[in-house]
Amino acid sequence: METPITKSQEFRSEFLRLLQSRRSHKVPLVADSSKPVQDPLFQAAVPSTETIESCPKENIGNLKEMLIEENLHLHTEAGEQGKLPLLIISLKDKSEERRPAIVFMHGTNTNKEWLRPWLEAYASRRYVAIGLDSRYHGERAHCKTAYRDALISSWKNGNTMPFIFDTVWDLIKLADYLTEREDIDPKRIGITGISLGGMHAWFAAAADTRYSVVVPLIGVQGFKWAIDNDEWEARVNSIKPLFEEARIDQGKKEIDKELVEKVWNRIAPGLASHFDSPYSLPVIAPRPLYILNGAKDPRCPLGGLEVPLKRAEKAYKETACPGNFKFVAEDGVGHEVTSFMIKESSDWFDKFLKQSGHVHM
């Protein structure tokens, strides 16, 4: 009988093969210094930072003066989108001790600069906090329609995967870089994100075991379930121009489930089949995973999580770590991050990344 580990390895090899199938040329893993971004690009209205500002922080009076900020470009592949912009914030520290690190992923149409209050809160608590621009966002976007245009181009040409998967490739390369840094404990690297960023966190952890603690916020969903149960509309509406373009190309009067499945298969092959949440969540076991969603979130309908959650629970039991898995759908909450989610994720990271230098396995 196959062990869960074998299944996980098979999943990762197959997923990596897909990611490599649409890459440009390999380049050496180099991080160049860059300048702070003075006027970050938002591709839609700027979301409030009030919730992430509620993140627990150490009471350091002169915190801003105590922080070190690094702006870098990490080369993850050839070409313009192969330059990964990083914003790394940490606390000045004279000790030689390696610290835990957390990667933070922004949502659709925002950027790493928006994450700053969240990064600073974790840095105050002695984490190395890493924000980045996902593909076609922030420094990787040259206009307000960059992400939308990239999605449409992927549908038409099938040569890139701007929805989730290309950024997961960057996150694998980022793990290569972070594990080599002298200030970071390579065994204590967490990842979290909001909405699209939550999807990035979930798939990066499925793809790469170096992300040892994972907290996706309002991102985990069942893509195939949504198609089969006509619950796809809210997710589709979040990137509507792509589906409108596909509808016209296919000569359809309206967007329907058949079209939705076609689009996912084209721009993110396997997203609505063998890489979907019923298969990708269990492979994160036994690493600590806390999924936080809104109970009324139409983009991540709870019905689509029944099977994935059952399978994940089973995987955590089989690896003798049932306490490393948690799911909460916050009552009355739609597609939004709350201060409860920010506090819960903070406590989860502290529990698994702060104690005794290693994750509990």
Rank of each mutant, 00 (worst) to 15 (best):
T3C: 03
T6N: 07
L16E: 15
R17M: 12
R17W: 01
R17H: 07
Q20C: 10
S21T: 10
S24R: 14
V27C: 05
V27Q: 07
V27G: 05
P28K: 11
S33C: 15
K35D: 15
P40G: 10
L41D: 04
F42L: 06
Q43Y: 05
Q43F: 08
E69K: 12
N71R: 13
L74Q: 00
H75C: 10
T76P: 02
A78V: 04
G79K: 03
L84T: 03
D93C: 11
D93E: 12
S95A: 09
E97G: 07
A101N: 06
I102G: 00
F104K: 00
M105E: 01
T108Y: 14
N109Q: 09
N111H: 04
K112S: 08
E113C: 03
W114Y: 12
L115Q: 06
P117T: 07
W118M: 10
Y122S: 04
G138K: 02
R140W: 01
Y147T: 02
S153M: 08
G158P: 04
N159I: 12
F163E: 00
I164W: 00
I164S: 01
V168G: 01
I172C: 11
A175N: 13
A175L: 05
L178Y: 00
T179F: 02
K187G: 12
K187R: 15
K187E: 12
I191F: 04
T192D: 07
T192Q: 02
G193V: 03
G193E: 01
S195W: 03
H200M: 01
A207M: 10
D208Y: 13
R210Y: 08
Y211M: 09
Y211I: 06
P216A: 01
P216N: 08
L217K: 00
I218K: 02
I218Q: 00
I218G: 02
G222H: 04
K224W: 03
K224S: 11
I227K: 09
I227Y: 13
A234W: 04
R235N: 12
S238P: 03
P241G: 04
R247C: 14
R247M: 13
D249K: 05
G251E: 05
K252L: 15
V260D: 03
E261D: 08
E261G: 06
W264Y: 13
N265E: 06
P269I: 01
A272P: 05
A272D: 06
S273G: 08
F275Y: 09
P282S: 04
R287D: 00
R287W: 00
P288V: 03
N293C: 10
G294N: 07
G294C: 10
G294A: 03
C300W: 08
P301C: 06
G303M: 04
K310G: 13
A312T: 14
K314N: 08
Y316A: 07
G323W: 12
G323V: 09
F327W: 15
E330H: 06
V333S: 11
G334R: 02
E336I: 11
S339N: 07
I342T: 04
S346V: 11
F349E: 05
L353C: 09
H358S: 15
